[in-house]
Write a protein that binds this DNA or RNA. Structure first.
Lengths: 154, 154
DNA sequence: GGTGAAAACGAAAGCTC
DNA sequence: GAGCTTTCGTTTTCACC
């Protein structure tokens, strides 16, 4: 029941602290505290604990890939040959820098990958590189037209 | 050619500043400056400009959904009836809080959605709610086993 | 969880190349 | 235009209650 223990350690105030940091990772502890009726050190202690426990994994900048010039985004379903472990999938695919997301799935494919590339030429090269991996049997790609909604946490 | 101008305004140093902030949004300007041989105010001016231009859209906390108790993640392909606009898709689907990502695609489905739910019961309810939308003809779901890799920027 | 002081950081000004 | 240094207000952080 150690999982229950982890959950028991979080309360409503933690939820609000998390929500505030998801909204803006640079919010000051004092500002969060004002909204919640806590002092800045009290908020910091909660954030420190949430990071230690692993609820908060880190803080990152949200980059507009379109502005950056990385305009091409594709979902690629990966179909593998025979029985493969997720370790194998990770070790063979993590070398490709165009992969933004990778997860193993239950369903028809073995894994789903989100590919980011500068343009279609770049995309084609990356796809061919991935397809040439011995592990990969075949792929099914779906090109993204536009990203309508993005909510890091629902 | 204003788009080209935007691109011309970014140089190698900007790239490194962005990379550093993607890695940790709470890195101080001084730390970034030390790595790049700049002073803190110089770094701040770059970050301010990158935010104004829109390359950096904001800063967010990365939350471990598994630890939070939202254990169920699914990719859902949405197939719509006839010709629909992306505005229609957004307005009908954005009301469902379980949707974490939504993009229109070119391929067999019309849109791909990433669903987050607390458990399978929650997931089932959300899926039925989405399927009952008049806009939605059919769906194809792929349940995520484990998220192996996550790189906000490649 | 709060308080207060010390250290670190961020914001803005003036100056140099 | 881009950067450096100084200055000052704010934030973080740590002790202790």
């Amino acid at each position: 029941m150690e999982e229950a223990a982890v959950h028991a350690e979080r309360d409503d105030i933690d939820e609000k602290v998390i929500a505030r940091l998801v909204d803006d990772a640079r919010t000051t502890y004092a500002d969060i505290g004002d909204e919640l009726g806590l002092s800045a050190p009290a908020v910091k202690r909660r954030v420190d604990r949430l990071r230690e426990v692993g609820v908060i994994r880190g803080f990152t900048a949200v980059v507009d890939l379109d502005v950056l010039g990385w305009r091409t985004e594709v979902f690629v379903e990966i179909y593998c040959a025979g029985k493969i472990s997720s370790d194998d999938i990770l070790s063979t695919l993590e070398r490709h820098p165009e992969i933004a997301d990778l997860c193993t799935v239950v369903g028809e494919p073995d894994a789903i990958v989100r590919l980011l590339a500068a343009d279609t030429q770049h995309l084609e090269a990356a796809l061919e590189r991935i397809r040439s991996e011995p592990l990969v049997l075949r792929t099914r790609s779906t090109v993204v037209l536009s990203r309508l909604l993005e909510r890091p946490r629902a």
